[in-house]
Design a protein around this nucleic acid. Sequence first.
DNA 1: AGATTTTATGTTTAAAGAGACAAAAACACA
DNA 2: TGTGTTTTTGTCTCTTTAAACATAAAATCT
Lengths: 226, 226
Amino acid sequence: MFKETKTHEITVDTVILTLKNDSLQVLLVKRENEPFKGKWAIPGGYVRMSENLDDAAMRVLKEKTNVDNIYLEQLYTFGDPLRHPVARVITCAYFALIRAEDVNVISDEGVQWHSVNELPALAFDHKEIIQYSLKRTRERLELCPVAYQLLNEKFTLTEMQRAYELIMGKSLDKRNFRKKVIQTEGLIELNEFSKSGSKRPARLYTFENIRLNSKRAHFIKKEKKS
Amino acid sequence: MFKETKTHEITVDTVILTLKNDSLQVLLVKRENEPFKGKWAIPGGYVRMSENLDDAAMRVLKEKTNVDNIYLEQLYTFGDPLRHPVARVITCAYFALIRAEDVNVISDEGVQWHSVNELPALAFDHKEIIQYSLKRTRERLELCPVAYQLLNEKFTLTEMQRAYELIMGKSLDKRNFRKKVIQTEGLIELNEFSKSGSKRPARLYTFENIRLNSKRAHFIKKEKKS
DNA sequence: AGATTTTATGTTTAAAGAGACAAAAACACA
DNA sequence: TGTGTTTTTGTCTCTTTAAACATAAAATCT
């Protein structure tokens, strides 16, 4: 079926997750070429000879969607010989959580956010890749407050709780959630309040370094009581 | 420096860890070809066009060391353009914990166990790969009793504790360790005792399914109290 | 028999974590 | 001013976890 002498091709694919319209959404591009022309896919492309995998992931994401300067983390490498119908293409998948407002998605019919609960038909094994990224995100969320990557610079605790609920897929007790999250290292209580326009205004919070795009922002740990 | 048109090569490399001589050891092969001829390396080789990455990892391990039929887990993909001095080779690293007695390492000067605390000069970025596998192993150990993969079919709790201590790099309280480990789901107390030949014999334990080579044997969870 | 070594075993204390639960304050709007 | 909606806050209970710690039993060796 395959010539054993032919060399493989290697791509990177990126799962970009955000919160939008009260749902967890993933950034997809419509394929313009065969195979799977017209189907949706996560942004990806070939790795160049002189760039490392992290850089390649960042570059293809920028090229396809104009999304730049975010922290991408390696997810898993998918190498089933049949995952690509034409060639032998191994892909190294990356993922990131971002604030939808932070990125300028190319205004284009071919680049759109889709709810992870209502995915269209996807090219290749991209559905599997997205599912795996969700699993990883949930595992992360149990360890540290990665949700802040999805929130605005200033956010209310209700917004943060909603982010957790959307990712974990279950509702949480308001008082217990706040009790826990308030202990998080780096969380800062502001003297500002949401101007919601209606109802009681909510206090705003922020994170230290929320603007840093820190390479390891993922790994904020809970404070150890001294 | 690189021709952008040339295709990448992709390999798999495997970190095989075991307990031997009261230390955590990794299986290395001496390279017979350039680059790094004569240096030690973790077993690896090229991925064939018709095999998936998991199969490729298993095959190269078998070819180089005669080690067969163990559960390899994908670790990370290393793709720095300079990691290979001659070509652009991206490698997908795998790792496994095994019982040294379970495998027939080819009796050969070129295939040897080395303590992870006293590694010789290693080819490529293999030192980094091994370090990363140790980090991952420790993270695993905090979640579930992966150490049983390193022990004989029947083992004493003292042996198991020693395994934990070697992996975590710290000593543990005997009573507290036993208290915790006895609650592990799948641990079976046998009516057999070690014939150590000296001192008081120790009770032997085993795990359900310890012989299964289960693909997900890693993920035994602690029993939930009902 | 006595010395030595290894196995085996339980309690207490403190700290942290999970889960359940209700009432008052701030604002918008009519 | 009154109604409605959202934010805000604390306590109690129960469970789990961590850490510290000492003595008796089973075997070997001399």
